Amino acid sequence: MPAKKTFQDDQVIEKIMHLFWQQGYYHTSMDEIVTVSGVKKQSLYNAIGDKHTLYLRSLQRYHQQTLMRCTQAMQRLEQDGAAPLTILSMLFSRDLTATDQPAGDLMANAVAEFGTTDADVQRATNWFYDDYLTLMAAVILKGQANNQITDEQSSMSLAQSLLEARIGLQTRLRQGSQPDIQQRQQAWLTFLARH
């Protein structure tokens, strides 16, 4: 009879997610995962899976948490009557200067580390960016409808450019650079505003 599981998957994945976020996939050993999670290696394998599966679960958790927090922040801003550009500003700069988490973004780190060499990781990162893009495009479309955001390009094209700028900033932060986030944000808001 297998031993009874004595840990919560979500709490364990949360700890492992932060480890991967800090160190990357290839620089994280199973021994470090065991130490950080506080769960024996065999128990992790039996309950969740191998290192690759743990990484994919970490990406999934990051995806869910990030999108949920963004959606909640958007709803609060909308309830307060914030303009679409204000909401877009939040989506653009959200967590870029956070000091209570590793630098950069787990998804941007995954793309930098794996590129197109792992189909599962590529699917996870594409899914995340598609969802983030959809959030941005919806806000832009709303701003275009009320003449606050330029309509010289489609909402999706503008959202794609904005998202790619955000990913670039996340990568720079991960490299240890300290770009002026507010200056970049202001430049984008000026570009997007309807004149």
Rank of each mutant, 00 (worst) to 15 (best):
T6G: 08
F7C: 06
D9V: 11
E14T: 08
I16P: 02
H18S: 04
W21H: 04
Q22R: 05
T28W: 00
I33C: 00
G38T: 07
V39D: 01
K40F: 11
S43K: 07
L44P: 09
L44H: 04
L44C: 10
Y45I: 09
A47N: 06
A47Y: 01
A47F: 05
I48Y: 01
I48T: 04
H52T: 10
L56E: 05
R57Q: 05
S58T: 03
L59P: 03
Q60T: 14
R61G: 06
Y62N: 09
Q65L: 14
M68E: 11
R69K: 12
C70W: 10
Q75N: 10
L77V: 07
A82T: 09
P84H: 09
I87W: 05
L88E: 09
R94V: 12
R94E: 14
D95C: 07
T99F: 03
T99H: 06
P102R: 00
A103W: 02
G104C: 00
A108I: 04
N109L: 13
N109I: 10
E113N: 01
T117S: 15
D118G: 04
D118W: 02
A119Y: 13
A119K: 13
T125V: 15
T125K: 00
L135Q: 14
G143V: 05
G143A: 04
G143L: 02
Q144E: 07
T150N: 10
E152Y: 14
E152W: 15
E152H: 15
S154K: 08
S154A: 08
S161Q: 15
L162S: 07
A165G: 13
A165R: 06
A165E: 08
I167E: 06
G168H: 04
R172H: 09
R174H: 03
Q178I: 05
P179G: 04
Q183I: 06
T190G: 10
T190A: 08
A193Q: 15
A193E: 13
H195F: 11
